[in-house]
Design a protein around this nucleic acid. Structure first.
Length: 583
RNA sequence: GCGCCCCUAGCUCAACUGGCAGAGCAACGGACUCUUAAUCCGUGGGCUCCGGGUUCGAUUCCCGGGGGGCGUACCA
């Protein structure tokens, strides 16, 4: 999901990958503001007439400041007469929480504009070398240009050390009053932690051996108005005052990504993992497709859907709970290998392993069966782990787990029989219920299907740590799977478990239209709360003829949890669902 | 949905059995031109999540609400 979604947005014009080259080709160049502190020679962006974009002067709103957007802020964003609530710097301030630190930054912002005459938010493109590349190149007499965010600042009289953080690393900066001239030195003293700057200068080693840019020129790229949490790491590698408020991290992921390198690595790693999954499928002849998210009939899983209303058609529709039924239509249509990687939505509770919108990879392969799916799963997990930088052995919650294929296979019926020491399949539902009562599980359930499933979880899956395929599920748990030849009560289905996480669900797909109709109609007529309407168009497709096929759904978030040793699904999702905070 | 726990300065955390809301970092002012959790001197910063109650007095106890975490339920 993230990989593609981002790349799909790349051709956005002014933020294209190499704006400078594009501009150079067009021969558009502009004199930089010589004599204005903090202005490099710069090229104008396409379509911009005024190099110094000033926001329009909007009159400040009247009335009491009773709005507060910070969820933790109980007090009012009171206006104080500090003398800088004038001119363009005032735009938008009435919406902000103003505390002493924000106030100090606003004052510096105004001073930059009014005293030094620079634009704190210049709309410019420029070439900057990535910080890791500068670090790799080592000391250099020739000046380099770098851009990033200032963290940590160590003042030393008329010299200042600071750390500049870019996407993949950081480097120390050294500002000296003597090197910079009065105006740029003034700018240095107006910089705050969190400001985004561009610097250039030669690279040298300090006495203590730290690679450092001796800044000879600098420009502000964007002024930060909010104080960042200040996280420090000492010489022993111990971290001090790390941001640890999970609510803050989830609600303000941008800040979390800036200050918590582990979260940054985990979330970026997830994207790489997703790219690896796509790469595997693309290489193996699978076609990536997109099927409807808004569906008139939901199906393909047993789950509570989100319900919405399509006004133009005056119809109720549902956010998809699975992509299965549409992807199978494509097998009928003659696409032999298809996959979709995207979000499914289930209107159910949130816990450590469940998210109401989660990323699922579903793939379908004609002429294959669930055995082929097992092999695909093994290969994809290995490649994903490789891409995530995990190697073939990982540690999850303290357990060492080997991802080296082949994964173990255990039969559903035999493993339950063995673990429980009973033939639970011959038990009446009432007896199963009594057993569940004794084990204190499956509260409220009375039907045989749910009870057997819960007992299986209790006896078998909770004990599975190493990657394992549980194979050959009872038919009554698997309405869309094909029966095992010569064993009609059993289906060719597996679920893949690792470290107690259910990662995949796959079957040899049911392609007998009459049998499928019977199962779906029985289900729709049952008391199952989650059974939707019978999807006639899906049955129409099966009646047209679907090749035998293997199909599989993989929980992408959970695979990421496994590879990055995450304690909660929220830790591998960039923006987890949270309640909105009401005043 | 239910149960338990948490919410104090921008961040990380104190505040005994109910007795003047504190520290470090950050901020602000000052000193310091190779520091790196820089250092040194000084200053400001709080509706203690919100609303009620008990009390002479509530960050602390009680009730209600909000948000979060964990567990549980729903999730073939």
């Amino acid at each position: 999901m993230p990989g593609r979604a981002v790349s799909a947005q790349e051709p956005r014009g002014r933020h294209a990958d190499t704006p400078c080259q594009a501009l150079r080709a067009r021969g558009e160049q502009e004199e930089g503001g010589e004599g204005r502190a903090g202005e490099f020679q710069e090229r104008r962006l396409v379509g911009e007439s005024d190099p110094v974009l000033r926001p329009p002067a909007v009159p400040a709103r009247q009335g009491p400041q009773d709005r507060c957007r910070d969820f933790r802020c109980g007090r009012r964003a009171g206006r104080r007469d500090t003398g800088f609530h004038r001119g363009v710097s005032e735009v938008g301030e009435e919406m902000m929480e103003i505390n002493d630190q924000v106030q100090a930054r606003l004052a510096k912002l105004a001073e930059m504009r009014e005293r030094i005459g620079i634009d704190p938010y210049p709309a410019r493109a420029f070439d900057a070398v990535s910080i890791p590349a500068i670090v790799a190149a080592g000391p250099s007499e020739a000046p380099v240009t770098a851009a990033g965010r200032l963290r940590s600042r160590r003042e030393h009289g008329k010299a200042v050390f600071a750390d500049l953080w870019g996407q993949d690393g950081s480097i120390q900066l050294y500002f000296r009053a003597d090197d910079l001239g009065a105006e740029r030195w003034t700018l240095v003293n107006l910089l705050d932690l969190g400001d985004i700057v561009r610097v250039s200068g030669p690279v040298f080693l300090t006495r203590s051996g730290e690679l450092t840019i001796a800044v000879k020129d600098l420009a502000l790229v964007a002024k930060s108005l909010r104080p960042l949490p200040v996280v420090k790491t000492d010489s022993m590698g111990k971290t001090w005052d790390a941001l640890s408020d999970t609510e803050f991290m989830y609600r303000h992921r941008c800040v979390d990504l800036i200050v918590n390198p582990a979260d940054r690595r985990r979330l970026a790693g997830r994207s790489k993992m997703v790219t690896a999954l796509r790469s595997y499928l693309d290489r193996n002849g699978f076609l990536e497709v997109e099927t409807p998210v808004l569906q008139p009939i939901y199906g393909g899983a047993s789950a509570e859907p989100f319900v919405t209303r399509y006004r133009a058609q005056d119809e109720t529709c549902y956010l998809r709970i699975a992509t299965e039924l549409y992807l199978k239509r494509l097998l009928v249509g003659g696409f032999d290998r298809v996959y979709e990687l995207g979000k499914d939505f289930r209107n159910e509770g949130i816990d450590r392993t469940h998210s109401p919108e989660f990323t699922q990879l579903e793939l379908y392969e004609a002429w294959a069966d669930y055995g082929v799916m097992m092999r695909r799963f093994e290969e994809m997990v290995c490649e994903a782990a490789e891409a995530a930088g995990c190697g073939s052995t990982i540690v999850f919650h303290g357990m060492e787990i080997s991802l080296r294929p082949p994964f173990e296979r255990v039969g559903f019926v035999e493993s339950l029989r063995k673990a429980s020491n009973e033939d639970l399949f011959s038990w009446a539902p009432a007896d199963l219920r009594k057993l569940c009562d004794r084990l204190e599980i499956a509260e409220g359930a009375t039907d045989r299907e749910t009870l057997i499933d819960k007992l299986f979880d209790h006896y078998v899956t909770e004990g599975i740590h190493q990657p394992t395929f549980v194979v050959d599920y009872p038919q009554f748990l698997s309405p869309l799977a094909k029966q095992k030849p010569g064993n009609p009560g059993i289906t060719e289905r597996f679920e893949a478990f690792v470290a107690g996480l259910e990662l995949a669900n796959a079957f040899s797909e049911q392609n007998d239209p009459l049998f499928q109709r019977k199962v779906l109609e029985e289900q729709a007529g049952s008391s199952d709360l989650h059974a939707g309407e019978v999807d006639e168009d899906f049955l129409f497709a099966l009646e047209t003829g679907m090749p035998s096929a293997g199909g599989m759904g993989i929980g992408v978030d959970r695979l990421a949890m496994l590879l990055f040793d995450a304690g909660s699904i929220r830790d591998v999702v960039l923006f987890p669902q949270l309640r909105r905070v009401r005043q």
